[in-house]
Simulated assay, not measured.
Amino acid sequence: MPNYADEPVYEYGSVDDFEQALSLPGGIHKICLAGELSLDVLISGNLSLIAQGYKIPVFFTGAVTSRELKTGPFFSGGGISRALGTPFVSIADPLISRHDSIGIGWYTGTPASPAMGGIARVVKKISWFFERNVLAIGGSAGGFASLSLAADDSGISALVWNPQTNILNYVPDFVIPYLDVLFEGEWSAEHWKETATQKFESAGLIFDLTVVPPAKNFLYLQNHTDWHVIKHCAPFIESHQMNAEGDGRYTNGANGTIQIANFEKGHTPPKKQLIQDAISLLCSDRNSTEDALHALGTMGHLADTDFKFLPEDLRCDSELLKELRLHFGTQDGKIFNCQLAHAD
């Protein structure tokens, strides 16, 4: 990640103070949240130079690797924005900035210092001040935060890739240290997910995007070989009753679109050029997510996808599949019967 140590720093005692600011110059805006956390917001360049009819790109960071060797705050989007020649905003995860024991925090904050509400107010202030709409951008954990923000405000659009949609369905080796920072306690027990769910709900922190109203405007890019298809993408599609349009595309009947394709292998982010092109298209207020996805296809970004090998949507055949039975025997004469069952 680029080094922003030379950026000027502007400090605010609260989100209220930030909302009262009479100017928003380039630099790092450090805003105290309730409790122990503070929110670091990088404004890079003069946002008023973004043309009318174009959105402000706002970046959210995914997991920070080699965490023990790095000191926050961590900002993403600099390289892409410079390639596009556009000013931008990047928001550091306040939990990661505060605690050097974790490299992923999903922008939830803590029960004593919740973050997403403050982030939403900060972004609304920036949007209002510069009279531009906003495009929230992020992959993986940054994608979770982008979808959360866009769900909070229908005027905010989101571009995400391979996002988590339920924090508790991510890799336990990363989730449990995060939970220990949030709630402390013992997390090695068999029912740690149930305990965490109760604690999240008691704290009022959103951790599962499948059980809250979805964002209205989003383009969600998903690698078809990523294990997130089963654990995160499919539950999101099902819970929000998104319609299968064929060739790995799902829509919400408005301006929300998911495209499952061969963008990259596994959980690897799509190529930088694809992300740059998607940002350029979605930053224009004239383009819907469908327009942007069609344009990405004409640019060749879907050319490597053999749609015959994408995960198949079998929801319409669910009743038939429930009746399937598998009967087989082994060489030692043992007989087994298998039946399709709902997976938790």
Rank of each mutant, 00 (worst) to 15 (best):
D285G: 13
F328P: 01
K308D: 14
H327V: 12
E323M: 01
P270K: 06
D306Q: 01
F307E: 02
G329F: 03
D285T: 12
Q331P: 13
F307M: 04
H327M: 10
F307H: 05
L320T: 08
E290W: 05
D317Y: 14
P270D: 11
Q273I: 01
S288T: 15
L281W: 05
L324R: 14
Q276N: 15
C283Y: 08
A292Q: 02
A292T: 06
L326A: 12
T330Q: 11
F328E: 05
D306N: 07
R325C: 12
R325G: 11
A278I: 01
F307T: 11
F307N: 04
E312L: 12
E312H: 13
F307G: 01
L296G: 09
R325I: 08
F328V: 04
N287S: 03
L302P: 01
T298E: 13
I279M: 08
D304I: 08
K308C: 09
T289C: 14
S280I: 00
G297Y: 06
K271Y: 07
Q331E: 15
L324Y: 11
H327C: 12
K272I: 10
D332F: 13
M299V: 03
L320W: 05
L321K: 09
D317S: 13
C316V: 09
D304R: 15
A278H: 05
T298G: 10
Q273L: 09
I279T: 05
G329S: 11
D277A: 14
Q276T: 12
R325A: 09
P311G: 00
A303L: 15
Q273D: 15
D291T: 10
Q331G: 15
C316F: 02
E323Q: 10
D285E: 15
T330D: 10
F309Q: 00
G329Y: 00
E319S: 06
T298M: 14
L314N: 11
D317M: 12
D332H: 13
T298P: 10
F328D: 05
T289L: 09
L314W: 11
S288N: 05
D306V: 02
R315E: 01
C316G: 08
D304A: 15
F328N: 05
L302E: 02
R325K: 15
C283T: 10
Q276D: 14
D332K: 15
R325Y: 10
P270G: 13
A278G: 07
A278Q: 02
S318T: 08
T330C: 12
D291L: 05
E312S: 12
H294S: 10
C316E: 06
C283G: 04
R286I: 04
E290M: 05
K271E: 12
A292R: 01
H301R: 07
T289G: 13
L320Y: 04
S280W: 03
L314C: 07
L281T: 06
L293V: 06
Q276P: 07
L326I: 09
C283K: 10
